[in-house]
Lab assay of single mutants.
Amino acid sequence: MAAAAAAGAGPEMVRGQVFDVGPRYTNLSYIGEGAYGMVCSAYDNVNKVRVAIKKISPFEHQTYCQRTLREIKILLRFRHENIIGINDIIRAPTIEQMKDVYIVQDLMETDLYKLLKTQHLSNDHICYFLYQILRGLKYIHSANVLHRDLKPSNLLLNTTCDLKICDFGLARVADPDHDHTGFLTEYVATRWYRAPEIMLNSKGYTKSIDIWSVGCILAEMLSNRPIFPGKHYLDQLNHILGILGSPSQEDLNCIINLKARNYLLSLPHKNKVPWNRLFPNADSKALDLLDKMLTFNPHKRIEVEQALAHPYLEQYYDPSDEPIAEAPFKFDMELDDLPKEKLKELIFEETARFQPGYRS
């Protein structure tokens, strides 16, 4: 834990890192770190609560700039109880001085990944967590956004079992017609939660990839272990087919990539493993919904509104309290091709509203 900075004593240090967030945020305490930044909790002297502050230093890398800009653009436009918001952003007053960006968010005690390492969940908890994931996802999908990296560590939890989806750095506007060349190379989302079509096709992607990830998360809540822990690309596919069985001819016809289709045709026939054999203690309604989410063919996979209306979630289902976005989200430009200098300018502009004396 960093010592509390005395008023006016300059930035606090946390594990050798400068955290320049005073005077409003003090009493910093280390939480963890990701690929390009550290997260601390801090005391907000204005709202009198502890908050989470993520320090991001992305400006050396085009990919990190892209992810940072995506996350900020999306989260500043989203407003939903099951999606983490941005409360404040701290950065230098000029673009030349801006080396880091500090993002202030609600402090959540833990995440689903940490929880599943230590606790076996009751059916009631599984049901409530799944409902909140789908409630947040309904809003995301209504904005025409794909999260693309749903996994237990991106689901934040607090002691009252509130759940918030975080990390929109890989999110995209849904565009089933656009052929994202190089899709697989830039697709760094965790393999275990990846839909089979991501490994088999490169053309376009749809909201059904997020539903697949939610199915993987439900299976993990039922058993405290990942359902498809593939060691590499082909191993991942083999794990999936080992449980779902061989795809039907109709399902194979959806695979545009001939090499991928021929690979699947070359494999020995596998039978589907019954879900109640894998999860003998699970609620039968939970397994019915799991089956509809972990469907090989993305066109037959359940959609988020149908999933919310499934009998497993009937005690929570309330369409009048499951809000959607006001308007579909649009990125003005494809960020993939922009140089990091341009992305830095866009991050600077996007964060201006939090600067003292800002006038829109």
Rank of each mutant, 00 (worst) to 15 (best):
residue 71 E to R: 09
residue 253 N to T: 11
residue 314 E to F: 01
residue 215 G to K: 11
residue 293 M to D: 03
residue 277 R to Q: 09
residue 206 T to H: 08
residue 30 Y to F: 14
residue 158 N to D: 00
residue 241 L to P: 04
residue 305 E to N: 08
residue 287 L to A: 03
residue 285 K to Y: 12
residue 254 C to K: 04
residue 66 Q to T: 08
residue 230 G to K: 00
residue 69 L to Q: 14
residue 355 Q to C: 08
residue 98 M to A: 01
residue 341 E to R: 12
residue 187 Y to K: 03
residue 130 L to C: 13
residue 234 L to V: 11
residue 4 A to W: 02
residue 216 C to L: 08
residue 154 N to E: 08
residue 82 N to K: 12
residue 17 Q to D: 03
residue 127 C to W: 00
residue 334 E to A: 00
residue 127 C to P: 05
residue 175 D to R: 07
residue 244 L to R: 00
residue 238 N to L: 10
residue 187 Y to A: 00
residue 16 G to H: 10
residue 264 L to D: 01
residue 288 D to E: 15
residue 62 Q to K: 15
residue 82 N to L: 09
residue 64 Y to M: 15
residue 186 E to A: 09
residue 249 Q to C: 08
residue 355 Q to N: 02
residue 269 H to F: 00
residue 262 N to H: 11
residue 222 L to I: 09
residue 153 S to L: 04
residue 207 K to D: 03
residue 197 E to H: 05
residue 303 E to K: 09
residue 162 D to W: 02
residue 47 N to V: 11
residue 119 Q to D: 02
residue 72 I to S: 12
residue 128 Y to H: 01
residue 276 N to E: 09
residue 185 T to L: 03
residue 201 N to Q: 03
residue 247 P to F: 01
residue 202 S to P: 03
residue 27 N to M: 03
residue 140 I to Y: 08
residue 54 K to Y: 02
residue 120 H to L: 15
residue 135 R to C: 13
residue 234 L to I: 10
residue 336 D to P: 03
residue 77 R to M: 04
residue 300 K to Y: 08
residue 159 T to Y: 07
residue 240 I to H: 07
residue 101 V to A: 13
residue 46 V to H: 09
residue 129 F to L: 13
residue 312 Y to V: 06
residue 241 L to F: 11
residue 154 N to L: 06
residue 91 R to Y: 01
residue 93 P to C: 01
residue 224 N to I: 15
residue 46 V to K: 15
residue 290 L to D: 06
residue 306 Q to S: 04
residue 72 I to D: 06
residue 137 L to I: 01
residue 334 E to S: 01
residue 265 L to S: 07
residue 98 M to N: 02
residue 328 P to T: 15
residue 16 G to D: 00
residue 109 E to G: 00
residue 313 L to E: 09
residue 59 F to W: 08
residue 302 I to S: 00
residue 34 G to A: 12
residue 276 N to K: 14
residue 40 C to Q: 15
residue 327 A to G: 00
residue 27 N to W: 00
residue 225 R to P: 11
residue 191 R to W: 08
residue 293 M to Y: 06
residue 83 I to Q: 00
residue 173 V to K: 04
residue 39 V to H: 00
residue 343 L to H: 09
residue 157 L to A: 09
residue 67 R to C: 07
residue 284 S to C: 06
residue 287 L to E: 06
residue 92 A to H: 03
residue 353 R to W: 09
residue 245 G to N: 01
residue 15 R to K: 14
residue 84 I to G: 01
residue 4 A to L: 02
residue 179 D to L: 05
residue 113 Y to P: 04
residue 228 F to D: 01
residue 301 R to E: 13
residue 30 Y to C: 04
residue 224 N to A: 05
residue 250 E to A: 05
residue 223 S to N: 07
residue 46 V to Q: 12
residue 285 K to R: 11
residue 63 T to N: 12
residue 299 H to Q: 12
residue 280 P to F: 06
residue 41 S to W: 12
residue 128 Y to K: 05
residue 301 R to W: 03
residue 229 P to V: 02
residue 20 D to C: 05
residue 340 K to G: 09
residue 343 L to A: 09
residue 75 L to C: 09
residue 51 V to K: 15
residue 120 H to M: 14
residue 218 L to E: 04
residue 324 I to M: 02
residue 214 V to P: 10
residue 104 V to N: 03
residue 127 C to I: 15
residue 276 N to R: 07
residue 65 C to W: 12
residue 169 G to I: 03
residue 65 C to Q: 10
residue 131 Y to H: 03
residue 249 Q to Y: 07
residue 159 T to H: 07
residue 260 A to D: 12
residue 37 G to V: 14
residue 185 T to G: 10
residue 330 K to R: 12
residue 289 L to P: 00
residue 153 S to A: 07
residue 339 P to K: 12
residue 56 I to D: 15
residue 137 L to K: 05
residue 37 G to D: 15
residue 30 Y to A: 00
residue 225 R to H: 12
residue 114 K to Q: 14
residue 216 C to N: 02
residue 230 G to Y: 02
residue 173 V to M: 11
residue 78 F to D: 05
residue 352 A to D: 12
residue 230 G to H: 00
residue 239 H to L: 14
residue 297 N to T: 15
residue 96 E to T: 08
residue 204 G to L: 08
residue 341 E to Y: 07
residue 353 R to P: 06
residue 37 G to P: 11
residue 356 P to Q: 04
residue 84 I to N: 14
residue 5 A to P: 07
residue 254 C to G: 00
residue 46 V to I: 13
residue 7 A to E: 06
residue 8 G to N: 08
residue 141 H to W: 03
residue 296 F to D: 06
residue 65 C to S: 15
residue 254 C to R: 12
residue 297 N to W: 05
residue 50 R to M: 15
residue 143 A to S: 13
residue 126 I to C: 05
residue 40 C to K: 05
residue 188 V to D: 14
residue 331 F to L: 15
residue 56 I to K: 15
residue 208 S to R: 05
residue 237 L to G: 11
residue 58 P to M: 15
residue 156 L to N: 04
